[in-house]
Simulated assay, not measured.
Amino acid sequence: MEDATGSTHGCQNTSTPEEDMGLDDDFGPSELGTKKYWDDAYQRELEVFKDIGDVGEIWFGEESMGRMLQWMDKAKIPENAAILDIGTGNGAFLVELAKHGYTNLMGIDYSAASVELARGVLQAEDLTDVTVKEVDFLNCSEELKGFDVCIDKGTFDAISLNPDNTSEVKARYVQALRSALKEEGFFAITSCNWTKEQLLHRFSEGFEFVQELPTPCFQFGGKTGNTVTALIFKRLH
């Protein structure tokens, strides 16, 4: 993820497509893929928020939120669309969605501290109609259904660093996503670990690629690449 100053955390892929050795290569295990890491991180942010009102980091920076909102405007996502923020963190994106006029919002996170923090941030903005739940997306069974749009900013990155059964975890993520989305529903993902080609491969079954959103580029050694990838998919039958 990335804060508003542009620093990245847990991002391991800045390769160009030509450099991809495998479409679904796993990264080495990392504490960034563990629940304990995020529990501890959001507990610290929660304490800071309670002390001084600082909401903490914004994943991938404010630019990423604006990029997603611009796509939603162009795609004419209705204001009453059911929208799920997967791995909501501090709830900053839920705040922006609500301020943008969206009225049917839910954020989930498997960290209790994250959920408490997000609820506090929303309450401070007087946004009491936004739902935030403590839910493990990989084990949500039938709890999450009927969403028009699912948004992921860094959560798939984090679970890809899980030290245990990484391939199984990624497969379960795709299954959970298909279960949560309505047919023809949209999935918007922002990633700093996976390239466009790798994400197209991972979400090739059951999803149709819609478009790539523009993200900052870098040039090195005569090649051009992206430090962040943002893609839109549509759920098929």
Rank of each mutant, 00 (worst) to 15 (best):
R119D: 03
L69M: 10
G87A: 12
R119W: 00
T128C: 07
I52E: 06
K35G: 08
I108R: 00
T88P: 14
R119T: 04
P29I: 09
E47P: 04
T103K: 07
D73C: 05
T34N: 12
R67E: 04
V95C: 02
G53C: 04
T103F: 00
I58W: 05
A75E: 14
M72H: 11
G89Q: 13
T88F: 11
L94C: 03
S64N: 14
F60C: 13
L69T: 13
F60Q: 01
I77G: 00
G91A: 01
E96K: 15
N80M: 00
Q70V: 14
S111M: 08
A92N: 13
L32S: 09
L127N: 04
L105E: 10
G91P: 00
V95T: 05
G33K: 06
L46S: 06
D40N: 00
A82S: 08
G66D: 13
E63M: 12
D51L: 02
T128F: 05
L69Y: 06
L32I: 08
F49A: 07
E96G: 01
F93K: 10
Q123M: 09
E116V: 01
E62T: 09
A92H: 10
L122P: 03
L46H: 11
A118F: 09
W71L: 14
W71T: 01
P29Y: 07
W71S: 03
A82E: 02
A98W: 13
G56L: 14
L84R: 06
G61L: 15
I86F: 02
K74E: 09
V95F: 04
I52T: 11
A41Q: 04
M68N: 14
A124R: 07
G87K: 09
E45V: 12
F60I: 08
F60V: 11
V121P: 05
K50G: 02
N104A: 04
F60D: 10
M68G: 07
A81K: 09
Q70T: 10
A82V: 00
I52H: 00
D85E: 07
V115C: 05
A113I: 06
K35N: 15
E63P: 04
G61D: 10
K99N: 09
D73Y: 05
G66W: 03
Q123L: 12
I58H: 12
R119E: 08
